[in-house]
Design a protein around this nucleic acid. Structure first.
Ligand SMILES: [Mn+2]
Ligand SMILES: [Mn+2]
Ligand SMILES: [Zn+2]
Ligand SMILES: [Zn+2]
Lengths: 134, 134
DNA sequence: AAAAGTAGTGCAACTCATTTGCAAAGTTTA
DNA sequence: TAAACTTTGCAAATGAGTTGCACTACTTTT
């Protein structure tokens, strides 16, 4: 599936900026912040990228991660992800290089909640040192 | 153990403000933000409270939680907590009332990391609706 | 094709939590 | 007591995120 198809699949009209942002996210080996993406382009407007990311997130093309770095990171969702409980996975944030990785291979386990608490989403961030930094 | 002893125990000098902030955290049933604490006092300086919280955190009297609300929350550590891996627990953030609870009864399980990744801390936030909000 | 309507973009300005600089006040040490 | 160090209060800076608004581009209707 190419970039345009991926957008179409999520009911997002393929504008130039959207294609560029999606491409950036596809090629990045780790999650990216608004700022990271802005810096990848010579001349790109922050709010356009911001709104692009919001659109992508609303339409479940990407998910966001609050890794404690002070900048929200974004990563592509797997194809046909519906961002539901069983799609939840851990994220690892390296204290040294500040990279944030999706640990997609491992879904989060069942967690005992107090009675009558209802789980909807989760933001699970592990912190430490990544392989390239040791 | 009274408030002064608790501070002493963590090598924190018991100033008036510190005693008040500690008391506030002790009495709160859930985690509190800098702003929450500031609002509890008639006339209190934000940066003093800020630095108080930083001191408490550095000395492991409290731990911080990034719950996605845009405000970092703080909660008391259990006595003699060293904020190590086995002290890690989940937090629950209610989307409705914005309260953040420590789910202290349940420690986080062992998580499979990619090879050579080293875990040091974690910020695990569950989101949903709390019992009082349903 | 022209007009009207809708969606996306660029720019500037704003919000707001957090953080810092600095001088004044308080505390401890010699 | 004097010097050294710590804590506090105030004001200002920082910086991520967000919004208003005018302009452009695209789509649909006449
Ligand atoms: Mn992810
Ligand atoms: Mn906690
Ligand atoms: Zn790293
Ligand atoms: Zn609630």
């Amino acid at each position: 599936m190419n970039l345009e198809e991926k957008l179409h699949d999520r009911n997002i009209k393929p504008t130039a900026m959207r294609l560029l942002v999606l491409e950036a996210l596809e090629n990045a080996p780790m999650a990216m912040s608004l700022n990271d993406i802005e810096l990848m382009f010579e001349k790109a407007d922050k709010s356009t990228i911001y709104r692009t990311l919001k659109t992508f997130e609303k339409n479940k093309l990407i998910h966001s991660i609050e890794d404690g770095s002070g900048q929200v990171k974004y990563a592509l969702c797997p194809e046909s992800c519906e961002c539901e409980l069983n799609d939840l996975h851990y994220h690892f944030h390296c204290k040294k290089c500040k990279s944030t990785y999706c640990l997609s291979s491992q879904h989060i386990p069942k967690i005992e909640l107090p009675i009558n608490f209802e789980l909807e989403e989760a933001n699970m961030v592990l912190n430490g040192i990544c392989a390239s930094c040791r």
